[in-house]
Design a protein around this nucleic acid. Structure first.
Lengths: 202, 202
DNA sequence: GTCTATACAGTGATAGAC
DNA sequence: GTCTATCACTGTATAGAC
């Protein structure tokens, strides 16, 4: 399978934007890395802004696939214990964020959040909003099924997920510097254990 | 009290960098806002990079003052209940982050974290590291004094503080768009209540 | 869909007068 | 400590040949 020039531009732009920020990268730099002349880029994207926009829209669509649809939730929840469900979900989430492209997307969102309204929208609505909404549904059902203690499900969603987001921030910085992330993964495990301990406690 | 040209450059650079990122701001733009010519700026800072460096170093020193020194910790902990201590600490933290300059500093760190090794160092070592280290000490003593249940103090520090960091990320985006933060402050309160409930439970 | 050539405004920074 | 003037360079983007 070959990679088109447009895809090359997309991937190299993502890589550079995520490191230096949109304003820190020039068309010259992108096309040099791609191996074409500046003018050729405009056959694929009408402007530098359009490259960023297409990257952000791609992330949005791609990330929406990480959460299972609500209709299949009952079925999934029946098959798993609370512990295995949360650990499986975390595994998915980690895999997505450990993926090189996922990391770059995440970094790009961070560095462009105050320049791009779309980036802010994605962080608030998709990353934070959708994830919490999903978990709220999960915990509501777990409570219904009497599998966990009856806490406010929205609070549970936040208590579970928000530390994960912060750990992810740390993780990405460590990864960026090529540092060891073993201790961080332990922190993540201990967080899940702590949380499970609380909601399962009699 | 008057404000020197150097301070003006500092504050206007902070404002612009925090919105557009370092690369998105030109010397011309800074000096136009300050009201001097480009060449005059170099009487105060030797380069654009030096402005950023001085901002980051200022943040570092300034933030270190928000945490009370360890020597006074025993005294403070005797005077407060667990609840009043955590709520007072949160109040301090919030005040610092609600402050306009504090917000800009926080934004600057976020948008420059992958371009500036110093920014990464400040996030990891000062913001995350020092805060967790402090809280670990606090919870260790609370456990010693039998004021809370005997959990691993490092885990407690993370469970308490990491959601706060994520809430802060949300808070800053909402603030940037001039949106209402009332719901978010409720989230913060509910987090603290949830946490207190757990560690105080018999 | 790529190239050459080019437009031309904006970039960080410096020299030297006042 | 401010200014004017200027530097060499980089920025995005376009026209038109192949």
């Amino acid at each position: 399978m070959t990679i088109s020039t447009k895809e090359k531009i997309f991937l190299i732009s993502l890589d550079l934007f995520s490191q230096k920020g949109f304003s820190g990268v020039s068309i010259r730099e992108i096309t040099r890395e791609v191996g074409i002349k500046e003018s050729s880029l405009y056959n694929h994207f009408s402007s530098k802004d359009e490259i960023l926009e297409s990257i952000l829209n791609f992330f949005r669509e791609d990330f929406s696939k990480t959460l299972p649809p609500l209709e299949t939730l009952d079925e999934i929840l029946q098959k798993h214990s609370v512990e295995s469900f949360l650990k499986a979900g975390l595994h998915n989430f980690k895999k997505y964020m450990e993926d090189e492209t996922g990391q770059k997307m995440w970094r790009l969102l961070q560095v462009e959040q105050f320049r791009s309204p779309l980036a802010r929208e994605i962080i608030l609505h998709d990353l934070y909003g959708k994830t919490i909404e999903f978990l709220e549904n999960v915990f509501t059902k777990f409570i219904e099924f009497k599998k966990i203690r009856p806490y406010n499900p929205k609070v549970l969603a936040i208590e579970y997920q928000y530390p994960v987001f912060s750990l992810l921030t740390e993780y990405n910085i460590l990864k960026f510097d090529g540092k060891d992330t073993a201790e961080l993964e332990k922190k993540l495990e201990r967080h899940v254990d702590f949380f499970l301990n609380i909601i399962l406690e009699k």
